[in-house]
Amino acid sequence: MSGILEGNDPYTQPSFSRANRLGRLVWGLVRLVAFRFSPRPLHAWRAFVLRCFGAKLGRGCHIYPGVKIWAPWNLECGDYVGIADGVTLYNQDRIAIGSRATISQGSHLCTGTHDYTRPHFPLRTAPIAVGDCAWICAEVFIHPGVRVGEGTVVGARAVVTADLPAWTVCAGHPCRVLKLRPRWE
């Protein structure tokens, strides 16, 4: 359920369809009652709630109650994914997180932006993909359309504006490759 309305002036008209906005309203209420205040160990319960709203989650996902998810139907996680409290998944477009990946506290994955070169400042979205075994450390910001490679570690407070290669350690603002990360079997 993308629901993005093309050609609308976001200053005077909504950027998303009525169905999308209604879905987010219902999700917001359910998130507050059944997700946000659920006890920390109840990962299976939160996974169930997310699946009810269209999230595609693998086995053993640990999504903590303090995670802010804009649209569960745009979330896809592999097996044994960990997403810490304070993470924001601003998924106006799809966010795909590979198996055994970790998203640490305070990180922000943002799939939406606006085209500042156009007079009506239209909404633009692009999916984000995080590879298997990747680790997004604390307070990282990932821009729309970025792919983080398999096994990549992104250092704390990095700002990721471009794709990152597999099995590397990256950090900085803007984020850049620092060294290779050893692979394991």
Rank of each mutant, 00 (worst) to 15 (best):
M1E: 10
G3C: 13
I4R: 13
E6Q: 14
E6D: 13
E6M: 13
G7A: 12
G7D: 05
N8S: 13
N8E: 13
N8H: 11
D9C: 14
D9L: 11
P10V: 14
P10L: 09
Q13L: 10
F16Y: 14
S17R: 14
S17V: 10
N20D: 15
L22P: 02
R24Q: 13
L25Q: 13
L25M: 14
G28Y: 13
L29H: 06
V30H: 03
R31M: 07
R31P: 00
R31W: 15
L32M: 10
L32G: 02
L32T: 08
R36E: 10
F37Y: 15
F37V: 13
S38F: 02
L42I: 00
L42K: 00
L42Q: 04
A47K: 00
A47F: 01
V49S: 03
L50Y: 02
F53E: 04
G54I: 00
A55P: 10
A55R: 03
A55M: 08
L57Y: 02
R59Y: 03
R59W: 09
G60W: 00
H62Y: 04
H62G: 09
P65K: 11
G66D: 09
G66T: 04
K68G: 03
W70M: 11
W70D: 02
P72H: 03
W73Y: 10
L75R: 01
E76M: 07
C77Y: 05
G78P: 07
G78Q: 03
D79G: 08
Y80P: 00
Y80W: 12
V81F: 04
V81N: 04
G82H: 06
G82F: 12
I83M: 11
D85N: 15
G86T: 01
V87N: 01
T88D: 12
T88R: 07
L89H: 06
L89W: 11
N91Q: 03
D93K: 04
R94N: 05
I95N: 01
I95S: 00
A96E: 06
I97G: 01
G98P: 12
A101C: 09
T102D: 11
I103E: 05
I103N: 02
S107A: 14
L109E: 12
C110H: 10
G112F: 03
T113E: 12
H114V: 13
D115H: 10
Y116W: 14
T117S: 15
T117C: 06
R118P: 03
R118Y: 04
P119H: 13
P119F: 12
H120E: 11
R124P: 06
A126L: 11
A126P: 14
A126V: 09
I128Q: 03
A129H: 15
A129E: 13
G131Y: 08
G131S: 08
C133W: 12
A134R: 05
W135D: 09
W135E: 09
E139N: 15
E139W: 01
V140E: 03
F141W: 15
I142V: 15
H143A: 15
G145V: 06
V148N: 02
V148P: 08
G149F: 07
T152E: 03
V154T: 07
A158E: 02
V159P: 01
V160T: 06
A162V: 07
L164Y: 06
P165M: 05
P165W: 08
V169L: 10
G172H: 12
H173A: 14
H173P: 00
P174I: 08
C175T: 10
C175G: 05
R176E: 04
K179R: 15
K179P: 01
K179C: 11
L180P: 01
L180D: 06
R181E: 06
P182Q: 09
R183T: 11
W184C: 07
E185M: 02
